Simulated assay, not measured.
Amino acid sequence: MNQNIQLYGWKHFQLKTNISIDDNEIGRIRNVNKTNYDILTNQGILKGELTGQLLFTASNEERPQTGDWVKIMPFDQQCIITEVLTRYNQLARKELGKKTDKQILATNINGAFIVQGLDRDFNPRRLERMLTTLNDANIEPFILLNKADIAEEAEENVQLIRENHPNIPVLKISALTKEGLEQIESLLQPQLTYIMIGSSGVGKSTILNNLMHNEVQKTNTISEAVGKGKHTTTSRELFLLDNGSVLIDTAGMREFGLALDDIESVTLSFDDINQLGKGCRYSDCTHIDEPGCTVLEAIDKGKLEESVYHSYIKLRSEAEHYAASTQDKKRKGKDLSKLVRNMKRYNIKKRY
């Protein structure tokens, strides 16, 4: 019996979710093409489409995403997707230009590689934003600082990130010269799923090609005008690496708005603030103006950098705003549903 789906983490997914379904009735979404999908199955890669119910009544979040496990009805080299199996997590960001809608990047992920360039792309504040989102999704983070071969301040910047995030693996690499490739491979475990996220042109496609030992994604040269790599990847796609682990490549993201389920994920992303906060007088201290706040005391004594604190406050405020907007949207949805029900009752009474 062909065991393709086992290679893509089906057994791990079953252990995480307690789901038991015939292997030949399920598949994993490799990539999404608007309303059709490439699906990894025991019959090979099939083209899939949604049932009418999923297509017309399900929200964008409820429809299949890259990394999802789905129930299918195969026929020839195609299939119909009848159900999206329960996800054990999902990585999402706030949609650009919208208040509360979220964009799911991928689902059922064990670890994430945040890729930043040590050149002009180096941005500790954006890194904190991505780490906060990974904490919220319960995804183990790894930080890859790329372009060590051309960055003048490589060692200084690497040390800064290691000091700010002492509990997270931070690797200095060069995708061009393959420096650090073996270290990345040592972090990858068979049948577990990983994702790479970062801005356009930081080298994600080159890293993927190195790990695949083959050019599976196109790469472009560095722009002489701005010193940055050009955008190449345009979608999210799932790949099987030689060591048996699964890696999802993503398009570049210059903006990464927070769409958190738990606001406290912000605090967990700032190790210094998290540890200092345990000594505050009040257990629900906001670290803004409360008496006995050990975080504010640390700033006054120069033990905590103000830039780190301001970044924390900014992300906390953004997360609280998103949570409030989401609750307001849910309340309005309930009010509308109640109004519709009342109108139906009123019309029934008028008829009799």
Rank of each mutant, 00 (worst) to 15 (best):
A225C: 00
G244V: 07
S199M: 05
P141V: 11
L46I: 09
V216E: 02
R120T: 09
L46V: 08
T57Y: 03
L145I: 08
L160C: 03
I109V: 10
D242Y: 11
T66G: 06
V226S: 12
Y309I: 09
L40W: 04
R28Q: 03
F239G: 04
E152H: 10
T206P: 01
D271K: 00
D261P: 12
I348F: 02
N42Y: 04
S337N: 13
V308I: 15
D101Y: 11
T51A: 13
N146E: 10
L211C: 00
I207P: 01
K94L: 15
L46F: 10
L134N: 03
L127D: 00
N209S: 06
E153W: 04
H165K: 11
W69L: 03
I45F: 07
I80G: 04
K34I: 09
A324H: 09
E155T: 13
G203F: 02
I139N: 12
T66M: 05
T132P: 11
F256P: 05
R341N: 06
Y88W: 02
L96C: 03
S59T: 14
D121H: 08
D335W: 05
T232R: 05
N24M: 09
A259W: 11
K349A: 11
Y309W: 11
T132W: 13
G27D: 09
Y346N: 10
K334P: 07
E320S: 15
L241A: 07
N36V: 01
G97W: 03
S307E: 12
Q90W: 07
E320C: 15
R63H: 12
G203P: 01
Q103Y: 11
G229D: 14
L240W: 07
E179L: 14
R30E: 14
I104Y: 06
K178P: 12
I197Q: 11
N157C: 02
A251I: 05
E237S: 08
R129W: 00
H321K: 15
L15G: 14
W69G: 02
A154Y: 10
K172N: 10
D284V: 02
E182W: 12
R126C: 01
P169G: 04
E255M: 06
V216Y: 00
K349S: 04
I161P: 00
T267R: 14
K34P: 01
N18M: 10
S325A: 14
N18F: 13
E290S: 08
E179R: 15
Y8N: 10
P169F: 07
K350W: 04
K344Q: 14
Q14R: 15
G111P: 05
S186H: 08
T233E: 02
N167S: 07
C293K: 06
V266Q: 10
L105D: 12
N274C: 14
G44L: 03
R125L: 09
K332D: 14
V340H: 05
N220L: 15
G52F: 12
E83Y: 06
I39S: 03
V70W: 04
P291Y: 07
D272L: 01
Q65G: 05
C280T: 08
K338Y: 08
F270K: 04
K204W: 09
L176H: 13
V340L: 01
D121S: 12
G333H: 13
Y322A: 15
I109C: 07
L260H: 09
R341I: 00
K172P: 06
G279F: 05
N209D: 05
I72Y: 04
E320A: 15
P141A: 12
G180V: 15
L247Y: 00
Q65K: 10
E306Y: 11
E264V: 03
Y352Q: 07
T250I: 04
C79I: 09
T132Q: 13
